[in-house]
């Protein structure tokens, strides 16, 4: 493989990031972007299973779901939503920085994105601790004063499962953003090769999107939230 990065990329002149089995950078980039989209489709199906369960039970036990939702902390949920939307903005700006070759901005924006992610996780941890102490974790720990505790428990089972798997995705997201930030600092990405940053961005936005659905479904069922 001949490396001559100064010359305008030609089919014969390989970008060092071009893997051997691809003919051109375009092909490699198209392939990896498509791979990411297909992966996100599988993720939609993965969460789709839980959303289906949620819909079914919410239809069956609406009153209990309202009762459960009232135990959610409206403000923590709302703050977390804002945090995630901000993190998506910084992620989008990070992708742009990589495209126009601003290495410093890229690294900084990725780190801010990670920090937003950590804030989200921290708030989630506070909420989880509260729910645990309030006996809102299903199973033997569970206790609920109300006419229909059994089905409130189902609400909480779904709450823990859905937000738990979402938090797991957040955690993975924070780690891979960290990895990408490290390589960005090392100068791996630039206008010729920013595909990994873009793909991690897609993943990050997807995880945010899931939260955008979880937030109203879990926190905003009833209108009784005073604030």
């Amino acid at each position: 493989m001949s490396h001559s990065p100064a010359v305008v990329t030609h089919d014969q002149v390989h970008n060092p990031a071009l893997q051997h089995h691809f003919a051109t950078m375009e092909q490699q980039q198209e392939a990896s972007t498509m791979g990411m989209w297909v992966f996100l489709i599988t993720e939609i199906m993965f969460f789709g299973g839980m959303f289906t369960a949620y819909m079914v039970y919410r239809y069956m036990y609406y009153q209990a779901f309202v009762a459960g939702s009232e135990k959610m902390d409206f403000w923590w949920g709302t703050i977390n939503t804002v945090v995630l939307i901000c993190s998506s903005l910084t992620m989008a700006l990070a992708v742009r920085s990589s495209q126009i070759g601003q290495r410093k901005a890229l690294v900084v924006l990725l780190i801010i994105t990670m920090l937003f992610g950590c804030v989200f996780m921290g708030i989630k941890a506070i909420e989880y601790t509260g729910h645990w102490k309030e006996h809102q974790f299903p199973g033997t720990n569970f206790h609920f004063e109300g006419p229909d505790p059994q089905h409130v428990e189902i609400f909480f089972s779904l709450y823990w499962a859905m937000t738990g798997f979402h938090a797991l995705h957040m955690l993975i997201g924070i780690i891979i953003v960290g990895v990408i930030a490290f390589y960005s600092w090392r100068g791996k990405y630039g206008p010729d090769y920013y595909n990994p940053v873009e793909n991690v961005g897609l993943y990050w936005h997807f995880v945010d999107m899931v939260w955008i659905y979880l937030y109203p479904l879990l926190y905003l069922i009833s209108h009784k939230h005073g604030g």
């Binding site: 069956m60 036990y61 009153q63 209990a64 109300g146 006419p147 229909d148 059994q150 089905h151």
Partner: peptide, 19 residues
């Protein structure tokens, strides 16, 4: 078994659970 799930209009969910 779980009377509070589908309460008849005009009544309160006061019946005990027999489950």
């Amino acid at each position: 078994l779980t009377p509070a799930v589908k309460v008849v209009s005009g009544f309160k969910p006061i019946m005990p659970i027999f489950q």
